[in-house]
Design a protein around this nucleic acid. Structure first.
Length: 827
RNA sequence: GCCGGAGUGGCGGAAUGGUAGACGCGCACGACUCAAAAUCGUGUUUCGAAAGAAGUGAGGGUUCAAGUCCCUCCUCCGGCACCA
């Protein structure tokens, strides 16, 4: 027999498939569609890594099975080529980004082809090419037109190392996600997208999606809805008030002071009243110098300054209360001002302790309340005894810390005895406040002061203001320049190219200047999946017919790191495109499967620094793409992080070789025996269901069980073996194709129909019955299928391994599980 | 602190409330070989000669029966976080 030569086989079929355009997808036709997408890579200089191949193999197996099941499958890929990584690589290696991107994409494509991924490369897209970014710009214009893109001068996150402004999503614990540098707040002109307008829909529609619950929760956390109220506090001797946001209006009577953020505008308005303005200004300067992380670090000692001369009135109790500025209140959260309830909030408690402020308990911890106290509170009459119990409770809080839960109101006048949950709306109404919902989600800072991104299609005109570039003048081409490194000025390097910047105002035809900021990397990836549906369309982003046919993406495979960025942004843009009638579905990705990290050997992260990076090219070279694919799918559950193990990889290679040798046993005259028939149907059933569930490890395990069985036969019926090869084809496309043709077939195995199982034929002929006594396994026996309960139970009771346990005991009852188990329960 | 997910042999991991450890790796022994590799076969949770007993992070509970369901706790991983 020929030796298994993976290099020869894989090279041969790679060429053949390319030539016959095996994976080309046509639009429409009578078949049901299935859109299988994985996250397109950004083409870095590092090349493909084992994490990529794990994702791409999984979606490839799924796509291949769906094709064989008769679906019209759309399974494309392309390049997320704009953005900082590509630009930084280009600067470091002194090559223009467009050239390095081209070089890198070629390498990626070559690597992806070698792994045997069944992409339709006729639909390849590249976000940095004008025919693509033309439509990214078009979407921006639409957002601008609808008032969802606006110019702002608010302080934003600035990374001094990357020299660009960043969105909230680009930060990791106050550091730049890319380079780890501490973020500064920098006021500058920028473009913002009003993603917060979509917060509620982004939150609610999560319920309609077939995504892992953990991913939905991560997005819910990120959107961070909180329901509360706005409440006004009148200020003495001042024609105005402080407005605070609180989620606990039920604790209003326990509010003993107010805090506003140091940068709050109210402080300026109050300055005539403030007698210690010097201290206030000093504190403002002090906090302004702090970085975001310093300010928000948990457990930091509280600092602040009282606004002397200013007092506010608690609208529920009419008590006078001091007002502070303190940096534990953040300007961008809620309304940048709070009512402090030290008895029921840890941060307020810490502050009150430090500044020796009154702590007043207003919520009674339900767990400690006695029946008598509850009854008295509800009835509205208290006694000396009850007052002393309440005092003791309050002393407890003062000493040991706040109580954050719900309960009955105390020390709250007319509200005493009421339930804190029920009383919220009433208190809000009584003091003239109003219910208010806030979100943690911030508007999307959409401009970058960098070169390698989509130009923002706007023109600044002295006379007309901001003027959008007319649609028929798109795309606004990114000029080809020699110096694309970032500048210190806070402006994009584009600003220095006079011949590009200076242009004509489309409205008045007077002189105009182009917007020089560019879009973030996330722009192109927020809609790229739509372009695959209609990649060569020059009239529109996607034609309505093609969009209706392919949308939505049926299954989207990728990494967990994108849950609170790319997946939020794409959902936002998609909903917007839905609102303006470009797409027909309100959600882009019906189902989402998340991949687990491939760790280095030993369970640590793969990194160049540790020198434990596995290069898929080497694995393909030494062991073959089929082995790599099977290993990465067999290593463990798809969603779980798993360390790489070259030792275990051998097992996958052995499996491929074992199948290769199996060819020898094929025979046209061999008859399929009953046991093989049953196992065959069981295998079709399990493999089909497991691929559908992304449980590739157990699918392969079943194929191994089946292969082990076939190996033991003296000869294998040809049709039986062929069907096995078909089942194997999605996992190991090369070796399956080679064997398929050796068997005399002339068409590709990848065009075969997926086998169908017959449930009745999955049932074994013999039943294995387990016999338990008091729930402990004592014996097993085999009996022909069809035996009834009486027969099985009687037999079970006579088994040797069982009898000795029954001796001298009384049988209380017998449990029978059909065709499986008998449990004899003794008295 | 809050929200998720997970803890099972030497290792990666399997198990619709019904025979725990499938499948693979590793290891041991055997066959083949002058020998080795490859391959094939047998074995491999722990203790025990065996009968048997124990056993899925810890402790309780529900059930005829719990890795699986419920409660309390511990550890690890991921996300969020002075979010009012």
């Amino acid at each position: 027999m020929r030796e298994y030569d993976h290099k020869k086989i894989e090279e041969k079929w790679r060429k053949e498939w390319k030539q016959s355009r095996l994976y080309r997808t046509e639009d429409g036709g009578g078949k049901p569609k299935c859109y299988v997408l994985d996250e397109f890579p950004y083409p870095s200089g590092e090349g493909l890594h084992t994490g990529h191949t794990r994702i791409y193999t999984a979606s490839d197996i799924y796509a291949r099975m769906k094709r064989m099941q008769g679906f019209n499958v759309l399974h494309p890929s392309g390049w997320d080529a704009f953005g900082l990584p590509a630009e930084q690589y280009a600067i470091k290696n002194k090559i223009h980004p467009s050239i390095s991107v081209k070089k890198n994409t070629e390498r990626y494509k070559e690597q992806m082809d070698r792994v045997g991924l069944s992409y339709d490369w006729d639909r390849e897209i590249n976000t940095s090419e004008p025919e693509f970014y033309r439509w990214t710009q078009w979407i921006f214009l639409k957002l601008y037109e609808k008032g969802l893109a606006f110019e702002s001068f608010e302080p934003i996150n600035w990374c001094p190392s990357c020299q660009t402004g960043l969105a909230n999503e680009d930060l990791e614990a106050g550091l730049c996600e890319r380079c780890g540098t501490a973020i500064e707040k920098k006021p500058m002109r920028q473009w913002i997208l009003k993603i917060t307008d979509y917060a509620e829909r982004l939150l609610n529609d999560l319920n309609t999606l077939d995504w892992p619950e953990s991913m939905k929760d991560a997005q819910r956390n990120w959107i961070g809805k909180s329901e509360g109220a706005l409440i006004h506090f009148r200020i003495n001797n001042f024609d105005g008030h402080v407005m605070v946001f609180t989620t606990r209006p039920d604790t209003l009577c326990g509010a003993t002071y107010l805090v506003v953020s140091p940068e709050h505008a109210l402080v300026d308005a109050l300055s005539p009243l403030i007698t210690n303005m010097k201290d206030v200004i000093a504190y403002r300067t002090f906090t302004a110098q702090k970085t975001e992380i310093d300010r928000t670090a948990d457990g930091k000692e509280k600092t602040g300054v009282q606004l002397l001369g200013v007092t506010a009135i608690n609208p529920a109790t009419n008590e006078e209360m001091p007002v502070f500025i303190a940096d534990y209140v953040l300007g961008h959260v809620g309304v940048g001002a709070i009512m402090a309830v030290p008895a029921h909030d840890t941060r307020d408690y810490d502050f009150a302790k430090k500044f020796d402020l009154p702590i007043k308990a207003v919520i009674w911890n339900g767990d400690t309340a006695t029946k008598e106290v509850v009854a008295a509170l509800k009835a509205g009459h208290t006694s000396v005894a009850i007052e002393s119990v309440i005092h003791a409770y309050e002393d407890g809080i003062k000493q040991h810390g706040p109580y954050m839960g719900s309960g009955l109101l105390i020390n709250s006048g007319e509200y005493n005895g009421m339930n804190s949950v029920d009383v919220k709306m009433r208190i809000i109404a009584d003091v003239g406040g109003r219910p208010k919902v806030t979100y943690k989600l911030r508007d999307w800072v959409f401009s970058r002061q960098r070169y390698w991104g989509d130009p923002i299609p706007l023109i600044h005109c002295k006379k007309c203001g901001v003027v959008p570039v007319p649609e028929n003048m798109l795309p606004v081409l990114l000029p080809n320049v020699t110096s694309y490194a970032p500048t210190d000025t806070g402006e994009s390097p584009l600003a220095e190219i006079a011949e590009w910047v200076n242009t004509v105002c489309p409205k008045c035809e007077g002189p105009g200047k182009r917007e020089t900021n560019t879009m973030p990397q996330w722009a192109g990836s927020s809609w790229y999946y739509l372009r695959f549906m209609d990649p060569h369309n020059t009239e529109s982003l996607v034609s309505p017919e093609k969009e209706k046919y392919w949308a939505p993406v049926d299954i989207y495979v990728g990494g967990a790191e994108h849950v609170t960025r790319h997946l939020i942004y794409a959902r936002f843009w998609h909903k917007f495109l839905f609102d303006i009638g470009v797409v027909s579905t309100s959600e882009p990705f019906k189902r989402r499967c998340g991949v687990g990290l491939v760790l280095g050997e030993g369970g640590v992260k793969m990194s160049k620094r540790l020198g434990n990076v596995i290069n898929p090219d080497d694995v393909v070279e030494r062991f073959g793409a089929d082995t790599l694919r099977i290993y990465e799918m067999f290593m463990g559950p798809f969603g779980q992080a798993i360390p790489w193990s070259t030792e275990n990889l051998i097992g996958a290679r052995r499996f491929v070789e074992r199948i290769w040798r199996l060819q020898e046993k094929r025979s046209d005259v061999a008859v399929e025996d009953k046991a093989t028939l049953i196992l065959r149907h069981q295998t079709i059933k399990k493999v089909t269901a497991d691929i559908e569930d992304f449980a590739f490890n157990t699918a392969i395990s079943q194929l191994m069980i089946y292969a082990n069985h076939l190996e033991k036969l003296s000869s294998i019926n040809s049709d039986t073996f062929k069907e096995f090869v078909v089942l194997l084809a999605p996992f190991a496309p090369y070796v399956a194709e080679e064997i398929w043709h050796t068997l005399g077939e002339s068409d590709s195995v990848h065009k075969e129909l997926w086998p169908i199982f017959d449930e009745t034929k999955t049932l074994s002929e013999a039943l294995a019955i387990a016999v338990q006594v008091n729930g402990k396994l004592r014996d097993t026996f085999s009996i022909a299928r069809g035996a009834g309960e009486d027969e099985i139970v009687a037999l079970a009771g006579r088994r040797e391994g069982v009898l000795k346990w029954l001796e001298g005991k009384e049988i209380k009852k017998v449990i029978y599980v059909k065709d499986k188990l008998v449990n004899i329960v003794l008295g």
